[in-house]
Design a protein around this nucleic acid. Structure first.
Lengths: 115, 115
DNA sequence: CGGAATTGCCTAGAGTGTCTAGGTAATGGA
DNA sequence: TCCATTACCTAGACACTCTAGGCAATTCCG
């Protein structure tokens, strides 16, 4: 039960930002968002559906995205999401927060003790 | 109740690594670990005690650190923690995981849609 | 034709980790 | 004397991701 460390835990607090970023490229349905993130990350970011859909509700509830039922490229029923102006601003804030945070952590982790 | 985004959420899954890293510089007591992390991060990483102490138990339980009661620099009773060899190996793994993850996220977040 | 895989959505519940907010105790300074 | 600091501890709330299940329609392949 050793805990696999891998992104699952690290993803926390970042998934929302990644979803918003995906939608910054244009509207997309939920399934497509997960696909896209896996694609651009060379399969290193795996978004489980049990995380994805709740995340989308969260984002919609907060006014960052809006949804609309429609049809997918393959002709299937699908819910399309798009970024609101508010969501776009939020994305920018979160991106800045992440960048700042990641820089600090990287700096701390990369500094070697003069053993 | 707007959620302040700030590091709290991002810290998830990273705090343990940061603590291990702190101890890679040498033994330290809990309070000192939090102090050190705040120092080296220019006060941008704030480790709450309610997160810190449970984290230390976790790490000890998993065999990454060992503790010993002693006395602080100021002559007060304090519990000193030090990295075990296993903890050192774990630190390396987690550092690699973090680096890989951060690179991916940074890449995704920094790529601008050709609007 | 039939079954499996894929697309696409949804949800309950468990697990985990951080925080808030409280507490104890000793020391040092105003 | 009183308050800030050092130093530790803990219960409970909260938030988020995951596992593991479900549904329905389409497509692929034998």
């Amino acid at each position: 039960m050793a805990k696999d460390t891998s992104s699952s835990d690290l993803l926390r607090g970042t998934l929302d930002t990644l979803i918003l970023k995906t939608l910054a490229w244009g509207p997309r349905h939920g399934y497509g968002i997960a696909r896209w993130l896996e694609d651009v990350s060379d399969d290193m970011l795996r978004i489980e559906e049990g995380s994805l859909y709740p995340a989308l509700y969260r984002l919609e509830k907060r006014g960052y995205v809006e949804s609309e039922w429609g049809v997918s490229e393959l002709g299937r029923r699908a819910k399309h999401y798009r970024l609101t102006p508010f969501g776009r601003a939020q994305l920018q804030r979160e991106t800045e927060d992440w960048t700042r945070f990641a820089q600090i952590v990287s700096r701390v982790l990369s500094t070697e003790p003069a053993s």
